[in-house]
């Protein structure tokens, strides 16, 4: 960028902040960490199951704080992309396959990397299961789910 002829002020934005997971997020991440399943909320009126869980229904605005359920961390690849650039626009080598997985029994889903699959074998609507970090390594964060792998490719003994 040729800015040599112009007076410019270069700067960084050293902004530090917190983001609160909230009541719903706390329950989701603690449930994931402790038991390896997904906590969801259900609106009986609208017949919508929220994942990520929310304390309110975005359609009828009902309070869902007492409407919790749990589902297994598996579903179908609703869509996916092959990410070839990092956050600064530099090439990613190798590229990463990132998918939105529609989790079974919910109207929502989770975003994660696809693992243990060749790129040419990835399909929309392909069944996948979450690959979880070992229980001791889980920290109650999204990366407790390492990624998603094709259902058949998972080892038989699943993490609890």
């Amino acid at each position: 960028m040729n800015l040599t002829h112009a007076r410019v002020w270069r700067g960084t934005m050293p902004v530090q902040y917190l983001y609160t997971a909230g009541v719903a997020g706390e329950r989701f991440f603690q449930t994931l960490r402790r038991r390896g399943v997904l906590a969801v909320t259900r609106c009986a009126e609208c017949q919508v199951t929220y994942l990520p869980p929310r304390l309110y229904c975005e359609r009828c605005f009902a309070d869902l704080s007492q409407a919790w359920a749990e589902v297994a961390p598996g579903g179908r690849v609703h869509t996916y992309t092959v990410v070839c650039e990092d956050q600064d626009g530099h090439p990613l080598d190798p590229p990463q396959v990132v998918a939105f997985v529609r989790i079974d029994g919910t109207d929502g889903g989770l975003i994660g990397r696809l693992l243990r699959v060749r790129l040419q074998d990835v399909r929309v609507e392909m069944p996948v299961d979450a690959v979880l970090a070992p229980p001791r390594r889980r920290r109650g964060r999204m990366d407790d789910i390492v990624g998603f792998a094709p259902r058949r490719a998972l080892p038989r003994r699943r993490t609890p």
Partner: peptide, 26 residues
């Protein structure tokens, strides 16, 4: 992007558009 559920470290945020485009074409 929501920091708790939607941010994936180290990849371009255009991944959202890549996924949307794939589903649209599908």
């Amino acid at each position: 992007l929501d920091p708790s559920y939607e941010r994936l470290p180290g990849i371009t945020p255009h991944f959202v558009a890549g996924m949307e485009m794939r589903r649209y074409l599908h």
